[in-house]
Structures are given as C-alpha cells and as structure tokens.
C-alpha cells in the first residue's frame, strides 16, 4: 500500500470544489458586513459619541474577549432558547452573524487607529479650503486611513476565511464539513485533511497576492 493515496486525494478535489463557493460566500458576506459595522464602531470611537461610545467599548470587549466557537454556539444553540423568533436561524446565518460580530470588534480598532493616525495637518488643510466634515472624511481622511488599514484588514479577512471552517460544528456542510464526511466514509483521514488544508492554503496565498498588489497601488502616492 502506498504511503499516500494520491488518486483518492485527486478524486476529492471536485467534491470539495462543490463546497468551496459556500465557504467563500460566508467569508465574503461576513467580511462585507463586518467592514460596515467596524466602520460605524470606529467612527463612534473616534468622535466619542456619548452613550454609544461606552456601548461600543462593551461590544468590542465582549467579542474580542470570548472565543469565536463559544460565540457561534451561543448564537446557534443558545439564543433561540431566549428569543423565539430565532428558532428559524440556520447554521450558515449563525456563522455569518458570529464572524461579522467577532471580526468587526477587531477591525473597528484597527480602522480607528488608522483614522486617528492621519496627520492633523491634512484635516486642517481640508477645513481651511471650506470642506464640510463629511467631505473631509470622504475625500481626505478615509482614503489615507485605508492605506494604513488595508494590510491588517486583509489579515482579518484571511483569518475569517479559515474561521468559516468552524461552521461545520453547527452542522453546515462547507469545505471542512464535506471533508469530515468524506474522511469518515473512507477512513483516509490524513489524505482528506491534507487535501482540505491545501485548499485553504491556496485560497490564502491567492489573497496574499491580491493584498500585495493592492498595497503597491495604495502606496503609489507615497513613493519618493
């Protein structure tokens, strides 16, 4: 018997490819929602909006302070007992919810730091020519903050893609769930899990490549 059943691994590829879209979907929707939420939280923190600021701090503290797996179980198994309308919640929705809340807490802090890090002279120059606060944010501060925030945000996105694998604990058959089922049928655990590991690895490498190109473009204005 060969050390590695390569044929089995190759056979697994088309099966796993069928579940790849779900994994990517959960990550993409989670990331989009997390970005919107994180921007909102960051602005609340930057402007120190009374009341909301304290709520934001509590939110960030909780979602950074507890494991993602615990949060997922809380949403999927726990909340429906408390709130009847959530009995409809499926594993995919619960996963997206968990990823969104969990990662937005981290992302809010890096977005806030990026906004605060934009030099004060940039704000003054924009105000001096008569820009409103909204125009100043849109045209000057956020574009400059984006450049600073993108590398860390991309890291969170990469993290989030890998974290979608936790959805299998909520009964979702995505990349990891499918692999688990295949492995349980064939008993070829090593082959199955190394194949799915390579799947994740390739996705992340692809993203890292996108990240490098994006950073080069964002840094264009700052080359001497």
């Amino acid at each position: 018997m060969p050390l590695l059943d390569v044929d089995y691994m190759l056979g697994l590829v088309p099966i796993l490819l069928r579940y790849l879209p779900l994994t990517l979907q959960m990550a993409a929707v989670g990331m989009a929602l997390a970005l919107v939420l994180a921007c909102g939280l960051a602005v609340i923190r930057v402007l120190r909006i009374p009341g909301l600021n304290a709520a934001t701090l509590l939110f960030i503290s909780f979602f950074r302070g507890t494991p993602l797996l615990v949060q997922l179980f809380l949403f999927y198994y726990g909340l429906p007992q408390l709130l009847a309308f959530l009995t409809q919640i499926n594993g995919i929705t619960a996963t997206i919810m968990g990823l969104t809340l969990h990662f937005s807490a981290y992302m809010a802090e890096s977005i806030r730091a990026a906004i605060v890090g934009v030099d004060r002279s940039q704000t003054e120059a924009a105000l001096s020519i008569g820009m409103t606060n909204g125009q100043l944010m849109r045209r000057i501060v956020l574009p400059q903050a984006t450049r600073v925030a993108v590398p860390t945000l991309m890291n969170y996105f990469i993290d989030m893609i890998k974290a979608t694998s936790l959805a299998f604990t909520l009964g979702v058959t995505e990349l990891m769930g499918a692999t688990q089922k295949e492995a349980a049928g064939s008993f070829l655990y090593f082959e199955a899990f190394i194949t799915v590991a390579i799947f994740y690895w390739l996705i992340v490498e692809l993203l890292a490549w996108v990240q490098r190109r994006l950073e080069t473009r964002l840094n264009e204005a700052y080359r001497r």
Binding site: S121, A125, G130, R139, P143, A221
Partner: peptide
C-alpha cells in the same frame, strides 16, 4: 480666506494637480 501652511499640508493622497483642483471640485 485661503490658507498657506508652514508645513505645506498638501493632501498626501492627491497629485499636485488634484491638490489644486480639490477645492474647486468639492467646495
């Protein structure tokens, strides 16, 4: 009142042309 700053304070994310045109477009 237009302001010229000691430290120039040009918009770092904009070209020379865009720095000059920015106020005309936005304001």
């Amino acid at each position: 009142t237009a302001f010229v700053f000691q430290n120039y304070a040009l918009f770092a994310n904009k070209t020379a042309l865009q720095n000059i045109a920015e106020g005309l477009i936005v304001v």
